Simulated scan of single mutants.
Amino acid sequence: MANIKSAKKRILVNKTKADRNKAIKSGVKTSVKKVYTAIEAGDKAAAQAALLAATSTIDKAATKGVYHKNTASRKVSRLSKAVNQMA
C-alpha cells in the first residue's frame, strides 16, 4: 500500500477511471450483441435500429477516450457490413 499522499490519490483516481471505462466498454459490448442478435433473428429493421444505437454508443466511447478512434471505426464498419449483408 502506498504511503505518500499523492500516490494514495493516484490509486483512487485510477480506480475511478477504470470503473468508468469498464462500464462504457460493457455498454458497447451489450449494444454490439443486440445488433448480432437481431441479425441472427433475421429482423433487418431491428438490426438497423440496433446498429444506429450501437454506432452512437461506440462513437461516444471513442470521444471519451475509452477506445482509439481507429478501433471505434473498425467496430462500426464491421457491424455495418454485417447488417448490410443480411438477405
Rank of each mutant, 00 (worst) to 15 (best):
L51K: 11
H68P: 13
I4F: 08
A54C: 04
I39N: 08
A87D: 12
A46K: 12
R74P: 00
I11G: 00
R78F: 15
V13N: 06
N70D: 13
S77I: 04
S77G: 15
K69E: 04
H68T: 10
D19N: 11
I4C: 01
I4E: 13
K5F: 09
K8P: 11
I39H: 10
K33L: 05
A46H: 00
L52F: 09
T55K: 14
K29T: 03
K44W: 07
K44Y: 10
K64E: 14
K69M: 04
K22R: 14
K60H: 09
A62Y: 06
N70I: 05
N14L: 04
K81D: 10
K9Y: 01
A7E: 14
T30Q: 10
K33P: 01
K44L: 13
A38I: 00
A2R: 12
K81N: 12
I39E: 08
G42K: 09
K22G: 02
T63I: 10
V76C: 03
R74S: 14
R78P: 05
I39V: 15
A38H: 01
R20N: 10
L51D: 06
N14F: 02
A50H: 08
A45T: 12
R78V: 13
I4S: 05
I4Y: 07
A7W: 02
R10C: 00
R10S: 08
Q48T: 12
M86N: 11
I4D: 12
K29P: 02
I58D: 00
K64T: 08
L12M: 10
G27I: 01
V35H: 11
R10W: 00
K9G: 00
I24E: 02
A7N: 11
S6C: 06
N3Q: 12
G65A: 00
K69P: 01
K34M: 04
S77K: 15
E40V: 07
K75P: 01
T63P: 00
A47L: 09
M1I: 04
A45D: 12
E40A: 15
A62M: 11
M1E: 09
S77F: 11
Q48D: 14
Q48P: 07
K64R: 14
K29D: 05
R74K: 14
I58H: 01
S77A: 15
N3P: 00
T63H: 11
A46Q: 08
G27R: 01
K81W: 00
T71S: 12
K22L: 06
V28T: 02
K8A: 08
K15W: 04
A72V: 01
L79V: 07
L79A: 09
A62C: 08
S56R: 13
S26F: 03
A53F: 13
K81I: 07
K17Q: 13
R10K: 15
S26N: 09
D59W: 01
L79F: 10
K9R: 11
K64D: 14
D19H: 05
R78E: 15
H68R: 13
Q85V: 04
V76H: 09
A53R: 14
L51G: 06
D19M: 09
A62W: 06
Q85S: 15
Q85G: 12
A41R: 10
A53M: 14
R20Y: 15
K64P: 06
K33A: 11
V13R: 11
A72T: 02
I24C: 03
K75Q: 09
L79Q: 09
K29M: 04
A50F: 07
A54D: 03
A62D: 05
A2T: 05
M1T: 05
K69W: 01
A54E: 02
